[in-house]
């Protein structure tokens, strides 16, 4: 009988360097505790999905680029009729009446926070993250210097979470660290 398989992050220190800063302007971490699934409504069954999500998680599915959270679970808008479902810890989204695909391994999620987070992200992401334009609960599908990202803001620290295709995670980490170095980044795996 082979040994049990060990789950590993896509990041290792030699491709995703760690940096300690005493009074960091920006903090970079990986969220390794998330369950993710892409959810897309079938034609004519949109209401059925909305009801199912409401009754299972107490969440109104967002119809604009926002993230709606309740407890451990959140749904992030991902296009018309599409969402990225997230949960802290294991949640089985596959029972929803929709096209559901597990993305827990397909995406890595990086958390970028701190008073200079916005400034750091502005070197990679071309959308307006000023609080008048983008605030806690807002979400966007955009790119970070050519890497496709799905990003949302979770609090006013501000904290942003960035879902990125797993194979790109190390590059995005390096680019964030590079941009963050002049702004006092604390990056820890």
């Amino acid at each position: 009988m082979p040994e049990p398989l060990l789950a590993r992050s896509a990041l290792r220190a030699h491709v995703a360097p760690e940096i300690a800063a005493p009074a960091p302007g920006v903090v970079l971490r990986e969220r390794t505790d998330l369950t993710l699934a892409s959810v897309a409504a079938f034609k004519g069954r949109e209401a059925e999905l909305a009801d199912a999500v409401r009754s299972a998680y107490g969440i109104e599915l967002p119809t604009t680029p926002t993230r709606v959270a309740a407890g451990e679970v959140a749904f992030v808008w991902a296009g018309p009729g599409k969402w990225l479902a997230t949960a802290t810890g294991p949640v089985d989204f596959s029972t929803l009446p929709a096209a559901v695909a597990d993305q827990s391994d397909g995406r890595s999620v990086l958390s970028v926070s701190g008073e200079r987070a916005r400034e750091t992200l502005a070197t990679l992401i071309a959308i307006d993250l000023h609080p008048r334009a983008f605030t806690s609960g807002d979400a966007a599908l955009t790119h970070a210097a050519s890497i496709s990202v799905h990003l949302w803001q979770t609090d006013d620290a501000p904290t942003y979470e960035i879902a990125v295709f797993r194979s790109y995670a190390a590059t995005l980490w390096r680019w964030l660290v590079h941009a963050g170095q002049s702004r006092g980044i604390d990056a820890k795996l």
Binding site: S38, A40, F42, K82, A99, A101, D102, Q103, S104, D105, G106, R107, F165, R166, S167
Partner: peptide, 9 residues
């Protein structure tokens, strides 16, 4: 619906 799962597996 199509979803990329290249990185999932």
């Amino acid at each position: 619906h199509m979803t990329s799962v290249t990185d999932q597996w």
